[in-house]
Simulated scan of single mutants.
Amino acid sequence: MLKTIIGCFLLFLATGISYAQDETSKQEIIELSKTKWQWMADKEADKLAELFDEKAVFVHMGGSWGKEQEVNIIRSGGIWYKKADIHEVSVEIIDNTAILLNRITLIAEVGGNEVTNPFEVTEVYIKKAEGWKLGSLSFTKLMGFGDQ
């Protein structure tokens, strides 16, 4: 009986510790995502290059590509992510992977034209030895501002 009680207590304790670690990781990812949006607005291509995993993929309305092209587009101003107004954010942690969903209104300059679009943005982060790396950034355009 004592073994059962001790076993249940240890299981409860481990679950609590795991939950606290997940909550800490979720907050870390939310802050990292906010920082990423600011780096994108400031065209901090070198900082973004450090954040993006070498195998990262980026999905936009106009196509999809890898890290090098995304960094070059930001560096050249081909897409200038001027401001991301974040309306909702959620994070789920699965093992060493974090999936963040942002519902945003994005003000950007694309090919010299300023555009404003509502998006659901999916960001996938992978925990590596050197910290969290962005593995995927995908924009899904919402049908209208009323969807926010």
Rank of each mutant, 00 (worst) to 15 (best):
L142H: 01
Y81G: 08
E50Y: 06
I6F: 12
V59E: 08
W132I: 01
L11I: 11
T140D: 14
K34D: 09
R103W: 10
A45M: 02
L32E: 06
T35L: 01
A56V: 02
K82H: 11
I107C: 10
F9G: 07
D46K: 13
R75C: 02
V91T: 14
M1E: 11
F119A: 07
A84I: 08
I99L: 05
R75G: 04
G144I: 00
I126D: 07
L142M: 04
I86T: 14
D42Y: 01
Q21T: 15
A41E: 01
R75T: 05
K34E: 08
L10T: 12
K133I: 01
I29G: 11
K3D: 13
E92T: 08
S76G: 04
K133T: 01
G135W: 02
Y81I: 07
I93D: 07
F58E: 07
E54A: 12
E68C: 00
I94A: 01
D22Q: 11
E120W: 10
A98N: 07
G131V: 02
A45F: 09
G112I: 00
T4Y: 08
I86K: 12
C8S: 15
I104C: 13
K3C: 09
I86A: 11
K141N: 09
Y125L: 02
M1N: 05
I93Y: 08
S18D: 14
G62E: 04
V59K: 06
G78E: 12
S18T: 15
L106C: 02
T35G: 01
D147N: 06
E50C: 03
W65C: 04
E109C: 09
S64R: 07
D46Q: 14
Q27V: 04
T105S: 03
V89H: 07
S76Q: 11
V59M: 08
I29C: 10
G131T: 00
W39I: 01
T97M: 11
K34T: 09
I104M: 08
G78H: 07
V91E: 11
A45L: 03
V71I: 12
I99T: 13
F9N: 03
T24S: 15
A56S: 15
H60L: 03
A41I: 00
T35V: 06
K133V: 01
E50Q: 12
K141M: 14
V110A: 08
M1H: 05
I17N: 02
I107F: 09
L51I: 02
K83A: 11
F9D: 00
I107A: 12
V121I: 14
W37R: 08
D147L: 06
G63S: 04
F145Q: 14
K43D: 09
S33K: 08
F58G: 07
K128T: 02
I86N: 13
V71H: 05
E123F: 10
A84L: 11
W132K: 02
E88S: 12
V71E: 05
E109M: 13
L32T: 15
L51V: 03
I30D: 00
E50V: 10
F119W: 10
S33W: 03
A129S: 09
F119D: 05
W80E: 15
F119V: 07
E130Y: 07
M143G: 11
K55C: 03
E123V: 01
